[in-house]
Design a protein around this nucleic acid. Structure first.
Lengths: 141, 141
DNA sequence: TTATGTGTAACCGATATGGATACAGAAAAT
DNA sequence: ATTTTCTGTATCCATATCGGTTACACATAA
């Protein structure tokens, strides 16, 4: 998979760490080690999903739209991965073959079950959990 | 994701349908609607994972190495997806940032949990299940 | 009115994906 | 023994995706 989910999660965790202070795309990009445009593209998706808001102008930047404890990794996954499917089917199996004409329908169901299991697990973690884990690590170090 | 997992599953289900008759890469490719080389590449991986065997020469082809009821989708997933991870991390977050220097370790753990949930669900389905589903659909139609 | 920062478009190089051709080698068929 | 069949693998290609980069209009704060 691409790194967008990981970066989006990084962004939200970073914002949670900011304690309400807006963060610019440049600041976030420095933490992620990428470029501000990439961050802004993801922030646009997160904003559309209602997870963040943006404050324009000087002193502005991105903010969490909800408490970090109310944003799960599943929310992030849904906001970022527009396709929302881990698995892909192959195009147009042979309809004249007993297997070919049914494999997609049959396999799709099993893929959805696996996908649901993945999503259910993602729903168990919130951005606040990650922020707490990170705070713990920084305390120890 | 790419379609290799789906095609590999298609191959194995096709072989299960063959009832012990070897299938050539050309025959399988016709069912999948792709080219024989792609099938052979996947068969090589499946054979290395011990899921199939190949019979060379005239009248030869691919065969299941085990009963279809003993091959799970998790076996296929492990045979094909060498990386075996749905999620990817972004390269080299900033070690000078409290979030950047810990996000990978923290996120990796949560990703592994989700991945495990996915794999556990994949383990619930066997090639024999798929073949049975397909047989049922062909019976009705 | 100026400075700051977002949102978005356009372009690029690198990589992954699957399709196509080719061919050496193994085994079956004759 | 020779021919045919089929695998295993290498090579090349077109296309798509990914993330990086530059650029700029627009909104807002200073």
């Amino acid at each position: 998979m691409n790194t967008r989910f990981a970066v989006a999660t990084h962004i939200l965790t970073f914002l949670a760490y900011q304690g309400g202070e807006p963060a610019t795309s440049e600041l976030i990009a420095a933490s992620v080690n990428t470029n501000p445009t990439f961050i802004r593209r993801l922030l646009t998706q997160l904003a559309k999903a209602g997870l963040t808001t943006s404050q324009l102008g000087a002193g502005g930047g991105a903010l969490l739209a909800h408490p970090a404890s109310r944003i799960s990794l599943l929310d992030v996954y849904r906001a970022i991965d527009e396709e929302q499917q881990v698995f892909a089917l192959h195009d147009a199996p042979n309809p004249q073959c007993p297997v070919g004409r049914n494999i997609d329908a049959v396999l799709k169901g099993r893929m959805l079950e696996a996908e649901r299991a993945l999503q259910a697990q993602l729903a168990q973690t919130t951005i606040a959990d990650l922020a707490a884990d990170i705070a713990e690590r920084n305390k120890v170090a």
